[in-house]
Design a protein around this nucleic acid. Structure first.
Length: 616
DNA sequence: TACATACAC
DNA sequence: AATGGTGTATGTA
């Protein structure tokens, strides 16, 4: 680009400083990445990413965050001009109350497997211990410590890892294997605390207070050493552990001497507060890349830095956030642990990434296969849901969600598809042409599948017995960690289903006058045809009509080709439960609204003529 | 309730 | 050329 508006490349580089840091990834401080040349790694990642859609998206986000931070700084400046003694007094009272509630009586241990998947793979192939190795494909799930020396990290794109470490060995995921191994680890943990709390497959909290009482010859340190030794003897993998008077500190401590080490934070106010005073904010669970930057901007780098600014937290952040910051500063955290199956699940969903998907039929095929997946998961969990949530990621990486509360709980693929299709159709109207790299469906407002239909169940929800939606995690442990199948198989499956769906849709042939945007128009048409099966008046002549009219993508009614009217009608169709009516086979869509509502949405939407042929 | 964002793992 | 899936919490309107 000769006409670069920015003649000095260094100023761009300067502006990208925070972006570079962000690109280093979420597991920067938490992966035990000391003695890696982060400068150099950052350079490689930056250059390897530059120009990609992903990079551009990150760039936009970084700019947005920069703006937000400017706002925070401005508010901070305004605040500092005021008399803040009231705030100081109030927050000091709050701190005193928190301090009074401090409980140092419990001994909590956090056990964390070292590079878990990679370690399990090394058991089968010990020669891999000597070389850099990663598990996962397009994005790395984890990698061994040899690989970490190169700056390779979990969550990193595979091709970037390869640039950092050309000899990196990639292994595919093998969930059954990891699941078995996790079970072996847990067998040991249960002996020390039968009510241990398994966070995910490779970590758990234990409360060993009782165990220590029953074994007075042991100290927290020796007990933990014994746990780790026993895990190694039994499962042949190494774990790290943190010992502390609460879960938050234990979690941080377990990272302190990784791998294969342990660390204790003594249960005294002094020890705890001293430990926190120099601890980087990012080390605490809940502080990620974004919050770290915000805190750093106002001068909080370590938890000790909170104190001089304590009176600004409340006015600068939300109540909850301010309280969170104070709790961290003081080194407070929960002192109880319990099995996870005592939690109530709040949502269940599935999503998948694919390469640039567009066009009505492929998008519908994907929606259908997603619905089928969700149906399986719902059946397994014995759940139904009363709200559907459609998530899409555009090819630009922008994420949008659209949700709809249904009158009743649903669980079949058919119901899910029908409920979500209008949401998809709405997005197609909003973003024409709709090009996706991800689609997901999620159900919320869960109810027990075995518990009577829909809403009535709510009346009994608190009336006794095991609460609805309270599920044991039996085979859920298989679902274990995180990174499921490769996109590869995904795409294959999708194209298979696609054929099916195209067949299904082929009855509504779509004729379009414009080759370039044929897909979008047919998208809307297909949505319309599919939803409003029984709709009358849905058909237009096969030639372009003289008076331009567009069909509503929801109810298929032909409407005057005028943006305001058209949009208003679409909004109406989307907002009311017209879809349900149409599908149920009522005589037709309701009339458009008489009232004119103001909508800021979509005046940018282009105009297209749809020709919807007669139904067979 | 609807939607977005941040986060963990 | 190329950057994941599942679930939670929270803020805002």
């Amino acid at each position: 680009m000769a006409s670069n508006s920015n003649p000095d490349p260094n100023s761009t580089e300067e502006a990208h400083k925070s972006l570079r840091h962000s690109l280093l990834g979420p597991s920067l401080l938490k992966a035990g990445q000391d003695r890696v040349n982060q400068q150099k790694v950052g350079e490689i990642i930056y250059n390897a990413s530059k120009g990609s859609k992903f990079f551009k998206h990150e760039e936009r986000r970084d700019e947005q965050l920069t703006k937000r931070i400017e706002g925070i700084l401005k508010r901070k400046k305004e605040l500092e001009a005021l008399d803040l003694s009231v705030y100081v007094k109030k927050v000091d009272e709050q701190i005193a109350a928190l301090e009074a509630s401090r409980d140092l009586s419990q001994t909590i241990v956090h056990v964390d497997c070292d590079a878990f998947y990679a370690s399990v793979e090394e058991l089968d192939r010990p020669e891999l211990k000597e070389v850099p190795m990663a598990v996962g494909g397009g994005v790395l799930t984890t990698c061994n410590y040899k690989a970490r020396e190169f700056g390779v990290r979990s969550g990193m794109a595979g091709y970037i890892a390869k640039q950092l470490c050309p000899h990196l060995i990639f292994l595919p995921l093998n969930f059954e294997k990891y699941g078995q191994k996790a079970e072996e680890v847990r067998e040991v943990l249960a002996k020390y605390d039968p009510r241990y709390e398994a966070g995910s497959c490779d970590e758990a909290f234990l409360n060993i207070t009782k165990y220590l009482e029953e074994h007075p010859e042991m100290t927290p340190d020796t007990a933990t050493e014994q746990i780790r030794a026993e895990v190694f003897a039994h499962a042949k993998i190494t774990v790290s552990a943190g010992i502390a008077p609460n879960a938050r500190l234990a979690k941080i401590a377990s990272n302190q001497n990784k791998p294969n080490g342990q660390f204790r934070i003594q249960p005294t106010v002094d020890a705890v507060r001293t430990f926190m005073s120099t601890l980087p904010v990012r080390k605490v669970n809940g502080v990620g890349r974004v919050f770290e930057r915000e805190l750093q901007a106002i001068g909080i780098n370590t938890w000790g830095d909170v104190h001089p600014l304590r009176h600004l937290l409340q006015p600068l952040f939300s109540e909850k956030l301010a309280s969170f910051l104070l709790n961290c500063h003081l080194g407070l955290g929960r002192t109880h642990v319990h099995p996870v199956d005592e939690y109530e699940r709040k949502s269940i969903g599935t999503e998948s990434t694919f390469s640039d998907l567009r066009g009505p039929d492929p998008l519908r095929a994907k929606l259908r296969s997603t619905a089928v997946e969700l149906e399986k998961d719902l059946a397994n969990a014995e759940l139904k849901g009363r709200t559907v949530n459609l998530k899409v990621k555009l090819h630009t990486y922008e994420v949008y969600t659209r949700q709809k509360a249904l009158g009743r709980a649903i669980c079949t693929a058919e119901e899910l598809y029908n409920a979500a299709l209008p949401l998809l159709a709405g997005l197609e109207v909003e973003f024409r042409p709709l090009r996706l790299r991800l689609m997901g469906l999620r159900m919320t407002q869960l109810v027990d599948a075995n518990r009577g239909p829909g809403r009535l169940e709510e009346l009994f929800k608190n009336a006794g017995t095991a609460g609805a939606g309270k599920r044991k995690r039996e085979r859920d442990d298989e679902g274990w960690e995180v990174w499921p199948e490769e996109e590869f198989t995904q795409m294959k499956a999708a194209s298979g289903e696609q054929e099916e769906d195209i067949l299904l849709l082929s009855q509504h042939e779509v004729v379009d006058s414009d080759e370039e945007e044929g897909e979008e128009t047919s998208a809307a048409a297909a949505a319309a045809a599919e939803v409003a099966v029984n709709s009358k008046n849905a058909n237009a002549p096969e030639q372009a009509p003289e008076e331009e009219r567009w069909p509503c993508p929801i109810c298929t009614r032909m409407l005057p080709a005028e943006d305001a009217l058209f949009n208003e009608h679409v909004d109406f169709c989307l907002s009311r439960e017209t879809i349900k009516e149409a599908v149920k086979g009522s005589s037709g869509p309701p009339d458009p609204p008489e009232k004119v509502q103001q909508h800021q949405q979509q005046e940018k939407r282009p105009r297209k003529i749809y020709h919807i042929p007669l139904m067979p």
